[in-house]
Every structure is written in C-alpha cells, then in structure tokens.
C-alpha cells in the first residue's frame, strides 16, 4: 500500500500545489476582509467565479476577433488578467459600498445575511447573463497552454513515478507567487499597507491618526477582489470548464484554508491554502486505498470540512495565528 502511495506522490504534489495556489489566493481575500471588518465575506467565492466568467468571455471575444491568433498567447493572458482584476476589484468595492457599509454598526448576524444575499444574487446574475448570451450556463474556455511537461521523478528513485503537468499549471503557479509577493510587499512595506494594518488593529484609533478608514476598507476590498478575479481567470485556463456555482464550494474551502492558517494572517492564509490543496489531492488519490475501499474520492469535500471542524475545535486561532483573548 505504501509503495502505491509513494508511486503517485509526485503527481499528487504537483496537482496539490496547483489547487493549493488557487485556494491560497482566494483565502487571502477572506482573510484580509476578516482582518479588517471581522466579517466573513461570503460573496468572495462569487467574485472569483465572476472573474473566471469575465476572463473566459474576453478570451472568447478575442478569439472571435482574431486577436488571440495575432498576439502571443502569454501577452493575451496578461491583458485579460489585468482587465479582469480591475473589473472584479471595482465590483468588490461596489459590493462593500452597497451591501456592507450601511450595516457596519448592525449586529453581525445581519451583515452575514446580507453577504449571503450578495453571494446568491451574483450566482444568478452570472447564470442568466451567460445563459442569455450562449444558451447554456456551463462555459468552456478556448484551450490554451496545453503543452505537457513531465518531471522525471523516476530518475531520482524508482519508487516514484513521473509527474505530468501542463504549461498552464506553470503559469498559474508563477502568477500566484508574483501576486503573493506583491501583496506581502504592499501590506508590509508601503504607507497604504501600514494604514491597512492599523485599521485592522483598531479602527477608531486609526481614524484618530488621520487615516481615512472608509478608503482603506474600500482599498482592501479592491485588492482582495482583484486577486480573486485574477485567480478565477487562471482557474478557468487551468481547468477548462466553469459554471456559476463553482465559487461557493471553492470559496468555502478557501475559507477553511484561511482558518487553517489563522484568520487575519496573510502569510498564514498562503500556507494554509497550499496545505489544504495538497491534503485534498492526497485524499482524493489515496482515500480509497487507505480505507480499504470504504470511502472513495467523492468524500474529498467531506475531508476538507472535517479539517475545518477539527481546526476550529482544537486550535481556533489557526496554525500561524495568535490566540486572542476577548476583552469585556
């Protein structure tokens, strides 16, 4: 049994890192908003999904006009990424302005309910626009970056088999790393980043220090949503088919990743996302083997939620977070 697990391990790792990278960037969006507003932004998964749809729509449009053939594919992808992230960024700001800001002083239950409402509204909005335009709400993007590569793990030791991946996986991982380093630099080294950290620590004191709190919150939503939207495009390129309901379950898992890494902690969210991705791929590949065929790969979602529940019970502050004692 161990030999079989080892055999598939390189492939599991490659797939897991690709999936984990996606979780990590979405988890960033959750964790940033939670850090500042203490609100679970249920709509974040839907922003990711909308990003995927905008990206695919642009790619289809560009194919139709012949641009995609005229310019190098990587340039087209960068263009799509930039435009999508700006659009979803403004969408995030708009959602905050319309649905969350009026409720900032209400009980938290009410804000959560509003967030769920936004999430459902977006799902159906995207659903009917897509269905109206194309007759079907399941979209398949143009196939790009499909060249296969393999890493020869078998040359290291014969107990491993080779891992295969596509160019898109490579692009995904590189793009995610750039986004993460950029965000980390922004939050820790720039003046606006400092303002964000200050607002997260204490909103009222920050406003006394002449920080424009509303602007900082808008900026947080912009950055989180822009990153989420860009990840949506990368997801669509990597996995091909998208539908309006991908955002919810994926967002939920990304939230699990954020909790795993310690909510409010940006580097924790990155680590948590990668861990969750690898764990989930490992479970999908080996659950059947490990349990003697009782549980199959269809339980991988259950596995992810089980991690969430276990973390919440035993270490609610997450792996990298600091335990907060509540002051009365």
């Amino acid at each position: 049994m161990l030999a079989e697990i080892l055999q598939s391990l390189p492939q599991v790792l490659v797939d897991g890192i690709a999936l984990g990278a996606i979780y990590a960037v979405i988890a960033l969006g959750y964790t940033m908003v939670y850090g500042i507003l203490e609100l679970i932004n249920f709509a974040h998964g839907e922003i990711f999904m909308t990003g995927a749809f905008i990206g695919v729509a642009m790619l289809i449009l560009m194919t139709g006009m012949g641009w995609l053939a005229a310019m190098p594919a990587i340039l087209a992808l960068i263009l799509v990424l930039v435009v999508t992230s700006i659009l979803t960024g403004f969408m995030g700001v708009g959602i905050e302005r319309m649905a969350y800001r009026p409720l900032r002083n209400s009980p938290k239950l009410i804000t959560l309910i509003s967030a769920i409402g936004v999430s459902f509204l977006l799902q159906d909005l995207v659903r009917f626009i897509t269905e109206y335009k194309r007759g079907n709400y399941i979209l398949t993007g143009p196939s790009m970056f499909n060249e296969q590569f393999s890493i020869k793990f078998s040359s290291i030791s014969s107990s491993f088999s080779d891992a295969f991946f596509k160019t898109s996986t490579l692009i995904l991982i590189i793009a995610v790393v750039i986004m993460m380093i950029g965000l980390d630099f922004f939050v820790n080294k720039t003046k606006w980043g400092m303002a964000m950290r200050a607002v997260a620590q204490d909103r009222e004191t920050a406003s006394l220090m002449s920080i424009n709190v509303n602007k900082v919150i808008s900026l947080t939503f912009f950055i989180g949503s822009a990153l989420g939207g860009a990840t949506g495009v990368l997801f669509a390129v990597q996995y091909g088919t998208i539908d309006p309901y991908i955002g919810f379950i994926l967002g939920l898992k990304a939230f699990t990743a954020a909790v795993l890494g310690g909510i409010g902690n940006i580097r924790g969210a990155m680590a948590g996302g990668l861990m969750l991705g690898i764990l989930e791929m490992f479970a999908a590949a080996n659950l059947q083997l490990l349990t003697g065929g009782i549980f199959g790969a269809e339980y991988k979602d259950v596995f992810a939620f089980a991690i969430l529940i276990v973390v919440l019970i035993f270490k609610p502050e997450g792996l990298f977070g600091k335990a907060v004692t509540e002051k009365v």
Binding site: A99, I113, G117, F120, Q123, D124, R127, F128
Partner: peptide
C-alpha cells in the same frame, strides 16, 4: 422560475439593510 436565487438574494440584502 429559474430566478429563485436572484429573488432570494435580493430579499436577503434588502431586508438586511
């Protein structure tokens, strides 16, 4: 008949606010 999610989402937001 397909717009349930839209209607429910809108009700949730409007009533919350």
């Amino acid at each position: 008949a397909k717009m349930q999610r839209f209607i429910f989402g809108a009700i949730l937001i409007i009533f919350a606010i």
